[in-house]
Design a protein around this nucleic acid. Structure first.
Ligand SMILES: [Mn+2]
Ligand SMILES: [Mn+2]
Ligand SMILES: [Mn+2]
Ligand SMILES: [Mn+2]
Lengths: 222, 222
DNA sequence: ATTAGAATTTAGGGTGGACTAAATTATTTT
DNA sequence: AAAATAATTTAGTCCACCCTAAATTCTAAT
């Protein structure tokens, strides 16, 4: 059973890649949750992906799936497109960083090789999208990123924001309003135990942020 | 039976609009031909479009369809997107005029209102696409265009090319190579009877073109 | 008015992709 | 080890969209 990569399958592969970061397998439920699709439907699709030739996933009943080399290549290809598109929408079409995801998630299935390479070129071969997520290069090599959360810092550490992991538009707009965006430099001036609040100095301005927020911000110490 | 405009239905509506230019109805066969879909499949879709609420076409068995006001609005909306996209791909992303159609035909079903208005703005609200086809404005009013074919001219008439009606990439590249593009001014210096060849002066250069070519070029006399 | 040919519709099927409800299997708790 | 709970799969549907082959209907020529 050959398979044509379609809209739906591409989104599945992306989700599987995202969930199985550390080599773990992606469970039916986790995928259903992430894709907003009923678990029963996910099972069906996982079977199709596993029976494709070449197979895109290894599927063990009741134990979820892992990507095969083919599946991973396909996933990286679409992730590259997604992040290039987000960057393009943000930089060239003036989309705000909370609007780019939805649009990119539709465009990614449709643009040609030429479109992809054109925007890559016009953007100067960007390495990160507006949220700070790394963009796989032309050979589909994904740069490894530090994964220290802002919530883990203690005074008097200094750091630079690397990426923000949030899909909620309200949160993204809030963070942008406070300049909590990739590239911003900050300093921890206080830590409050029990509630985990951090007092942060950014642009000569002080703010107190709870862990519900700081958990979503990944930083590099400096 | 409500209907969601999908990829397929949008392409049908565009095709119906294009075929039924002069108020005539679009036949099953003409649509099948244009969309490269079996006639039997077209019948099925026409029924669905007719049974939608509100209906997008008036369907009379064995007599083809005409667009309802809703259908026409939907068609114009998607034609606007298509032509804006073609213009954008050509002007801002460096696509050649024989490459834009295919890409636009996929993107048109996917871009948001915001994307559409952004590129419209960046292009300065263009009125014509790279082939010279008029772009419906925001109120979906389609500018009427003269429709005199170059093949109908005789010496010593002068004219400006308005639009080129061709989907064949080879022809489009040929025409571009000869500067036979919208905006070019030319003069007819000779007409050869029987074969219909025209000798044309364009950019101080003379060329002889047969009716197979000149039929696809629409001009405005001057 | 009949009839041949062309256009169109019907009948029957297939694929991708989603759903709900019910059954099954795995895991955790007792 | 047994029972309760959670995760997953099966079974049965549905919808959009396409296909081929066969039947029907329209149209135009005789
Ligand atoms: Mn997507
Ligand atoms: Mn992103
Ligand atoms: Mn299209
Ligand atoms: Mn065009």
């Amino acid at each position: 059973m050959k398979i044509t990569l379609t809209h739906a399958t591409e989104d599945y592969l992306k989700a599987i890649y995202a969930i199985s970061v550390d080599g773990a397998s992606a469970s039916t439920n986790a995928l259903a949750e992430r894709l907003k699709i009923a678990p029963a439907s996910v099972t069906g699709m996982l079977k199709r992906l596993a029976e494709a030739s070449p197979p895109h996933v290894d599927y063990r009943k009741h134990h979820g799936v892992t990507l095969t080399p083919e599946g991973e290549r396909a996933a990286l290809k679409i992730i590259r497109r997604h992040r290039l598109l987000e960057t393009y929408l943000h930089e060239m079409l003036g989309f705000s960083w909370d609007e780019v995801h939805e649009e990119a998630c539709l465009l990614e299935h449709v643009i040609s090789e030429r479109f992809e390479s054109r925007i890559d070129e016009l953007l100067g071969h960007p390495t990160h999208d507006p949220h700070g997520d790394p963009i796989p290069d032309l050979n589909l090599v994904m740069p490894q990123e530090a994964s220290v959360r802002l919530s883990a810092l203690r005074p008097p550490q200094k750091a630079t924001i690397q990426r923000v992991d949030a899909k909620d538009g309200d949160l993204l707009r809030f963070l942008e309003g406070k300049s909590l965006v990739p590239g911003s430099k900050l300093e921890i001036s206080a830590y409050s135990p029990f509630d985990g609040n951090l007092t942060i100095l950014l642009n000569q301005q002080e703010m107190i942020l709870g862990p519900t927020i700081t958990r979503h911000i990944f930083i590099e110490e400096n």
